[in-house]
């Protein structure tokens, strides 16, 4: 099963490699991992998307909690939550494709943020499914480059991950 694990970690050098090293050393999957400082610059927030049985997810959260620099761990996918991912995609945009790509971007409420005579860079946010659908909607031959951020997640309503 797919899980989204959020954690707060001391913003110190090597902290990221402690987390990624834990996953590789124990053979856990990482589908995506994002990390950036929070409003408190001494702490970073990480969102890890992983898959595994309930037993494995339990071990993952326990092992993450055991890391000395990890302040808090929550499996946000256990309850209602929101996931968002950012994608930048560079597509060929010339001739008849130029208008078609623009229309598709509008449908997905994406923004074109760089324009040349032959290409667009399109910015799109949403959950993974929406991003996948957008890629599916564009002719594969037109895609020059894609870059995705991996997801950020947050609990809905009163659920707050804070020290």
């Amino acid at each position: 099963m797919r899980h989204v694990i959020s954690l707060l970690i001391e913003n110190e050098s090597g902290a990221l490699s402690r987390v990624s090293g834990l996953f590789s050393a124990r053979g856990y999957n990482i589908e995506s991992l994002t990390v950036a400082p929070t409003e408190d610059a001494s702490m970073s927030r990480m969102t890890i998307v992983t898959t595994g049985s309930d037993d494995i997810i339990e071990q993952i959260t326990k092992q993450l909690n055991k890391l000395v620099e990890v302040v808090k761990v929550v499996d946000i996918s256990e309850a209602a939550h929101i996931e968002r991912e950012l994608m930048l995609i560079k597509v060929r945009a010339s001739g008849k494709d130029r208008e078609e790509v623009k229309r598709t971007a509008d449908i997905f409420r994406a923004r074109i943020i760089d324009v040349t005579e032959s290409s667009y860079v399109i910015e799109l946010t949403g959950n993974q499914g929406k991003l996948d659908a957008f890629i599916g909607a564009i002719d594969a031959d037109l895609i020059l480059e894609t870059v995705r951020s991996g997801i950020c997640g947050i609990g809905r309503g009163d659920r707050v991950l804070k020290v």
């Binding site: 050098s13 090597g14 490699s17 402690r18 090293g21 050393a25 000395v68």
Partner: peptide, 14 residues
């Protein structure tokens, strides 16, 4: 050293 020992210490510091 910190990288090499990371998986076999409780914690380490540079």
């Amino acid at each position: 050293t910190v990288g090499i020992t990371r998986p076999c210490v409780k914690h380490n510091f540079l």
